[in-house]
């Protein structure tokens, strides 16, 4: 392809040939890339897909987080109104939250991101023993967090704060419950990677599989940081 400037120069011929050779060289490079499956790939197919999925999932949580923020404090107003009329109001979230307990389980969840990174580093070194160790540790930490959430939920329900008590219960249980569901999926994902590695199907060549599971796991952690801050750390009044 010649541009007008190319033709105007004195040695138009050389310019034309120069650019053609350049293009040919570029094509050679691209062609090798096509056949080896790394074409255009600053990022691999699977990794690009998981990033897009996580972006999508972020907006999914965004819906519930928006609902929570929009309805913050409304149950309190309604409870106050009930009190003024001499009616016993239902429990609201701030009556039942046990912040130190959840802080501890949150810390454990955050630490699982560290073990996840260690698992990835191990598989990249082809150290399968450590990979398995850190994968198990990550899944275990996730399970502890989940156990904490189940304990928290039952405790709240026992104290009279349930899904149907009021808006506070509605938004809290659905949002944190969905996060718990994401953690559960993550644990199964990690366990299936464990299964693959036990049967020798996971080697250092497959480190991307661990990396992708890791991206999901970190995402679930990051979402928890947002949820924990909004629900537990910012007081409603």
């Amino acid at each position: 392809m010649t541009t007008p400037q190319d033709v105007e120069t004195n040695d138009a011929l050389t310019t034309v040939h120069g650019s053609e050779i350049d293009e040919a060289v570029e094509l050679v490079a691209e062609d090798i890339a096509v056949t080896t499956g790394t074409k255009n790939a600053k990022i691999s197919n699977a990794k690009l897909a998981i990033w897009l999925f996580l972006a999508s999932d972020f907006l999914f949580f965004g819906g519930f987080i928006s609902a929570y923020l929009l309805y913050r404090g409304r149950s309190l107003e309604i409870a106050d109104a009930a009190l003024a009329e001499g009616v016993e109001p239902g429990k609201i979230l701030s009556d039942v939250l046990d912040i130190p307990f959840t802080s501890a389980t949150s810390f454990i969840l955050l630490m699982s991101s560290l073990t996840m990174v260690l698992a990835l580093a191990a598989i990249k070194r082809n150290d399968m023993r450590r990979t398995q160790l850190w994968l198990i540790a990550t899944a275990l930490f996730g399970t502890i967090f989940l156990g904490g959430q189940i304990f928290e939920f039952t405790e709240f329900v026992r104290e009279g704060f349930t899904l149907t008590t009021n808006l506070s219960g509605t938004t809290f249980f659905v949002l944190t419950g969905l996060h718990g569901a994401h953690v559960t999926v993550g644990i199964f994902w990690l366990m299936s990677l464990m299964g693959l590695s036990m049967s020798g199907k996971l080697t250092s060549k497959d480190s991307e599989k661990v990396e992708i599971a890791g991206l999901y796991w970190h995402f679930v952690d990051v979402i928890w940081i947002v949820i924990f801050t909004l629900i537990y750390l910012i007081p409603v009044n």
Partner: peptide
């Protein structure tokens, strides 16, 4: 039984 869109309780 949640009340996301139930205006009587603030939804």
């Amino acid at each position: 039984g949640t009340t996301f869109f139930f205006s009587a309780t603030g939804g």
